[in-house]
Amino acid sequence: MRKGWIVSALIAVSLLFFFAANPLGIMAWNSWFGIVQRADDVTSYKTQKKVEDTCRSMIASYEADRLIYEQYKDSSDEEKQSWAEQAKMRANKTASSYNNYILENSFVWGANVPHDIAGKLEYLT
């Protein structure tokens, strides 16, 4: 009986060491749970709604900054030109974040991307 406990303890410690301290173990652990999380996310309405809501809010922010930029970029007033440059920087930052977010989360929709979600936001030049 005592021998069984010792063997069980050694196996548990070995597995703990393998998954906690060994790079291959950490990679295996992350790979397994990454696959499980991805499968859950693909089938989860909650995840899809969160991704869509995030995309829509980023698009709204981008559009607001783009419109401010378009409105003030040719102004003769230096302060308004400054507003335009700030809006341009915010819009480009939002576009960069959005484009990365779309790449990371495109698996949520598969081929069924909602019509109001853009595949990419263009940078302002």
Rank of each mutant, 00 (worst) to 15 (best):
A21G: 10
A20S: 12
T43G: 15
L24S: 14
E78Q: 11
A95C: 11
G119F: 07
Y72M: 08
E70N: 14
S96L: 09
K80M: 11
L103V: 05
G34F: 01
S106W: 10
E70T: 00
T94C: 01
L103I: 03
N112G: 06
Q71P: 01
D53W: 03
W109G: 08
E70F: 00
T43F: 14
Y123C: 05
Q71S: 04
D41C: 07
N22K: 09
E122R: 07
Y45L: 15
R2Q: 13
K49Q: 12
D41G: 06
R56S: 01
E52I: 13
L121G: 07
A28Q: 02
F17N: 11
V7R: 13
Q37Y: 05
L16Y: 09
P114K: 13
C55K: 03
A9H: 08
G34W: 00
N30F: 09
S75R: 06
F17M: 04
M1E: 13
F107T: 12
I11Q: 05
A20P: 00
R56M: 07
E85G: 02
Q86T: 06
D40A: 09
K73Y: 00
A87T: 00
G34Q: 02
V51W: 10
G34I: 07
G119E: 06
R66E: 11
N105R: 14
S82Y: 03
S8A: 15
E78A: 10
S61D: 08
F19N: 03
L24F: 14
G34D: 02
I35V: 09
A60Y: 06
A12G: 08
D40Q: 10
S44C: 08
S14T: 15
D41V: 07
S14C: 13
K80T: 04
D74W: 01
L103A: 05
V113H: 04
T43R: 12
T43D: 06
K49Y: 06
F18A: 00
L121I: 11
A20F: 09
K73Q: 02
K46C: 02
W109D: 09
N30A: 01
P23K: 10
M27Y: 06
S31K: 11
G25P: 02
Y45P: 09
W5K: 15
P23Y: 04
L124V: 15
W83A: 05
L15I: 08
E85N: 12
R56H: 01
V13W: 05
Q81E: 03
Y69D: 01
Y123W: 04
S44F: 02
A91V: 05
V42W: 03
W32S: 05
P23R: 05
A12M: 13
E85P: 01
E70S: 01
A12L: 14
E122A: 14
A91R: 00
N99S: 00
V42A: 04
K3S: 11
A111L: 15
R90D: 08
S82T: 03
R66N: 06
K88D: 06
D65W: 04
K93Y: 12
D41T: 05
D65R: 09
I11S: 10
R90E: 05
G4K: 04
N30H: 13
K46F: 12
E104R: 15
G34C: 03
E70Y: 01
W32N: 05
L10H: 06
G34K: 03
L10R: 09
C55D: 02
R90S: 12
D65E: 14
D65K: 14
Q86F: 15
R90Q: 12
C55I: 07
Q71R: 11
N105V: 13
N22L: 07
D116K: 10
K50S: 11
A118D: 13
K93L: 14
F19T: 02
